[in-house]
Design a protein around this nucleic acid. Structure first.
Length: 467
RNA sequence: GGACAGAUGGCCGAGCGGUUGAAGGCGUCGGUUUGCUAAACCGAUGUAGGGGCUUAUACCCCUACCGCGGGUUCGAAUCCCGCUCUGUCCGCCA
């Protein structure tokens, strides 16, 4: 959520920000509602102040007179009753006026709040402008020794690559048919060494973050209340992306939602809290199952492990002081962890600075990491895929957008409660990462070499052999 | 699933329908005293919104907040209704 005060002072910044992100927000309506709301509020507060003043002045008198009235004989009550009526006239008038204003407020307030939630965080000033992912700017590439992703796989390795779909079938790592039988399209079953490879990479990433990078490992709920989804900025915009458990229809108090990323659980942890300065920065890492409906992605990446409804992800999150420079430093540090892991797995990758049009509602700066996947891309004349980079990671800086919604604050040096800044970044998401893992490390004989760091999590084997 | 009990500030814990943003205690911060520490004493110590003043802090004023939402009343932490949450006991259970 944006700061409404910042919006009043400089609406142009938010209007431009939404425009650069390619998002439509009814700003004139927001301005109008905000003004109405403020005017009503001001008047209401004046009336209430008057009420309070009278309550102290004439209130006790009224009470005394009412007491006298009770103790009196019928015929003597007239004079006192008159006094009472006079004393009560103004408070009763105020009461009615307040009621009218309150009704007016309840007309504008909900619409105002709802609209405010839809205003996106403006992109950081140095984020390149652009319409969509085609305008993202490559920052750098990395290749393992002996492999150059700029050249075809066959040139690098001396044989034609199999796609991950072919590999998981011949190596019996994934059973798509039974996955679909049980749960429908975009579902799958990990089998045998497929499950072990999946577990190995998740476990390796979590351990790496905990042991080498000082992040606190957490196990968090993946079933959460709506407040968590709104607080982390996934709702209302992404409502269609989340699985919805309609518990209220079964007589329970709250509906629940399956989270699409561990970020929701990690950020929800300290919602509604005021942290002490020395508690920061929070550095959390979690491994959690993620659920995505992939609404609106019909027909896209339908085959294979690329786009699926359920997967596991190791996610890192940092909550730090409201300081732009500090947030940028953490952004680099988090990405460095990702690069260390990808390099240790010997996967070619590149970093992309996302342009304004590719940002979401909640982030002001985002860098995507794409791994080279030999089985992706258009097929060449001989029917072999050309290979292409595919997104495997995403690292976002959110400013205070998320913490503002979550009401997550800390006491700054001067003791003032301040909304913290938040960042999040994929450490590794599997099975998607298994695509480059299998495709890059495949051998001419159809086997796949397991990168050294994963072997101890796979019973010590070095290769997955066909058959 | 059944039966009870409860929800008040950073924490514990009082609170008659009006003078209670809320006693008392603890904690924290500042000060005094003191070889140091400790103790003692004095003072301060919630959040949000709006306004004033200001270059900006500071400061001043107003409003709201005693789980949440309604209601009664001239006036609600206090009375009434609904909801949520927490705890305890019993049952069931991976």
């Amino acid at each position: 959520m944006i700061d409404i005060k910042a919006f009043r002072e400089n609406p142009a910044r938010f209007v431009q920000g939404a425009k650069d992100k390619g998002m439509n927000v009814d700003f004139p309506r927001l301005t109008a509602l905000d003004e109405q709301r403020r005017n009503i509020l001001t008047e209401l507060e004046h009336k209430r102040a008057e009420q309070n003043r009278l309550g102290k002045e004439s209130g006790p008198q009224i009470g005394k007179l009412k007491g006298q009235l009770k103790a009196m004989a019928e015929q003597d009550r007239g004079a006192i009753q008159q006094q009472l009526t006079a004393l009560e006239a103004t408070p009763i008038r105020l009461k009615n006026e307040v009621a009218v204003l309150e009704r007016m407020l309840s007309d504008v307030e909900p619409a105002w709040a709802e609209l405010l939630l839809t205003v996106p965080q403006p992109p950081a000033t140095d984020v390149p402008k652009g319409a969509g992912s085609d305008d993202n700017i490559e920052i750098r590439r990395w290749n393992p020794t002996g492999f150059d992703a700029a050249k075809p796989f066959a040139t690098n390795r001396g044989f034609k690559p199999r796609t991950h779909q072919e590999l998981v079938r011949s190596l019996r790592l994934v059973d798509f048919e039974r996955g679909v039988k049980m749960s429908g399209t975009r579902h799958y079953v990990l089998t045998g060494m497929g499950m072990r490879l999946h577990q190995a990479v998740i476990r390796y990433a979590l351990d790496f973050m905990a042991d080498q990078r000082g992040f606190q490992p957490m196990g968090i709920p993946v079933i959460v209340r709506e407040e968590c989804m709104i607080g982390t900025g996934f709702f209302p915009a992404g409502r269609e992306q989340a699985y919805h458990l309609e518990e209220s229809k079964r007589g329970n108090s709250h509906d629940l939602f399956l989270t699409g990323t561990g970020e929701v659980g990690l950020m929800g942890l300290h919602a509604e809290e005021i942290l002490s300065l020395d508690a920061l920065p929070l550095k959390y890492v979690t491994a959690s199952t993620c659920f995505r409906r992939e609404a609106g992605a019909a027909g896209k990446d339908t085959a294979g492990l690329y786009r699926i409804h359920q997967f596991d992800k190791v996610e890192q999150v940092v909550v730090c002081r409201a300081d732009d420079a500090e947030s940028r430093t953490w952004h680099k540090t988090m990405l460095e962890s990702v690069e260390m892991i990808l390099q240790s797995l010997e996967l070619p990758y590149r970093l992309l600075q996302c342009c304004t049009g590719d940002l979401g509602v909640k982030n002001e700066d985002m860098i995507d990491v794409e791994c080279w996947m030999p089985g992706r891309g258009d097929s060449t004349a001989d029917g072999v895929p050309s290979g292409a980079y595919g997104e495997t990671h995403s690292a976002s800086r959110l400013g205070d957008f998320q913490c503002r919604r979550l009401n997550l604050r800390y006491k700054d040096e001067g003791g003032r409660p301040t909304f913290a800044y938040a960042l999040n970044n994929t450490v590794v998401a599997s099975p998607r990462i298994m695509i480059p893992l299998l495709e890059i490390h495949q051998n001419a004989d159809g086997s796949v070499t397991i990168p050294a760091p994963l072997r101890k999590h796979m019973g010590g084997i070095e290769r997955i052999e066909p058959g």
